[in-house]
């Protein structure tokens, strides 16, 4: 409460009565309510439906092949799933997977974004191609990368052998310590161009005069990046970090197609684990429990994001 009031006063626009969440008159409020209500209502319904479904399933012993035949077993499914070491293995892998991918994507995305925001012909042409990897569905991309990584038949290994960096093919996807990271590279490859594009657009949305002013003040490129560009792109960057986190955390196909969670479950992340439970063991209830774990992990990240964003709002409007 206290924090809320503070943020309102800090941005200097909290002039109206407390019932009115928008800045402005009643006619404006009507516009905003009409703009927001249908979408938000739909979302509420969707979340309600999804939560209800997952919760109901998680309390049942139910076969994927026959959803309506479940028997309520209370918390037994939770007990069963949480007591398994494979569940915690999947949680650990998921955290490495999310962390590794999101950090790579963010670093590459911001760097590439700064480059792409230039108004030169070269940067413009490059920018046009950034979305090309998305022409293909994830499954196909994953199959393609699996081909790239193959120990005996892969393009990467033949290149490394030809350049004499290796004398025989290395099983990137079949090795306990490299499998998950090899897939992280693929996942980052898929997402960093999107990130870059958004960052570039963010930079271009801002008045170029800001940069001109900076340069006139004698700021070095590094100072300009740190003190002008970063604050400017912060909202979009944070949003993209959040979106990437969600996309990466919910991504099934890359690991599923490239390693199948192997070797020895070394790359089995939560979505792959819950897919296995649902479609190999036909244990839909257990799979619902795992997806609740996944949602909880993401929820924590979501909370951190929202808190962080509020702080940022205060800073930029001071």
């Amino acid at each position: 409460m206290r924090a809320d009031t503070k943020s309102v006063t800090v941005d200097g626009r909290g002039r109206h009565g407390s019932w009115n969440f928008f800045r402005g008159r009643r006619e404006e409020s009507l516009f905003f309510i009409l703009a927001l209500a249908p979408g938000l209502l739909l979302f509420l319904v969707l979340i309600g439906y999804a939560l209800l479904n997952l919760a109901l399933l998680s309390f049942q012993q139910v076969s994927t092949l026959n959803i309506r035949s479940g028997a309520f077993v209370g918390l037994a499914t939770y007990q069963e799933v949480l007591g398994r070491p494979e569940t915690w293995n999947a949680v650990r892998n998921s955290l490495v997977w999310i962390g590794g991918s999101v950090v790579t994507i963010t670093v590459l995305g911001v760097g590439v974004g700064v480059f792409l925001s230039r108004s030169t012909v070269i940067a413009r042409v490059t920018r046009a191609f950034m979305l090309v990897p998305w022409v293909l569905p994830g499954v196909v991309v994953a199959a393609l990368w699996k081909w790239v990584y193959g120990s005996q038949t892969g393009i990467l290994n033949s290149f490394l052998i030809q350049t004499e960096l290796l004398d025989r093919g290395f099983p990137w996807l079949g090795n306990l310590s490299t499998a998950l990271f090899a897939v992280i590279v693929t996942m980052s490859w898929r997402l960093f161009p999107l990130f870059g594009l958004v960052v570039a657009s963010a930079i271009n949305t801002v008045d170029r005069q800001l940069y001109e002013a900076g340069r006139l003040d004698g700021a070095s490129p590094w100072q300009a990046f740190w003190h002008i560009t970063l604050p400017v792109i912060r909202p979009q960057t944070l949003t993209m970090i959040l979106l990437s986190t969600i996309w990466v955390a919910n991504n099934l196909v890359f690991v599923h197609v490239m390693t199948g969670g192997g070797p020895l479950r070394a790359s089995e992340i939560l979505p792959v684990y819950l897919y296995r439970l649902a479609f190999q063991n036909y244990a839909l209830g257990e799979s619902a429990v795992v997806s609740i774990i996944n949602v909880l992990i993401l929820l924590i990240i979501g909370f951190l994001y929202v808190r962080n964003l509020r702080r940022q709002v205060q800073v930029s409007f001071l």
Partner: peptide, 16 residues
């Protein structure tokens, strides 16, 4: 057998 059998499937084996 080839090293890295854990990333070779039946198709890869036939390809070799």
């Amino acid at each position: 057998a080839p090293q890295g059998l854990t990333d070779l499937n039946f198709r890869g084996a036939l390809q070799l």
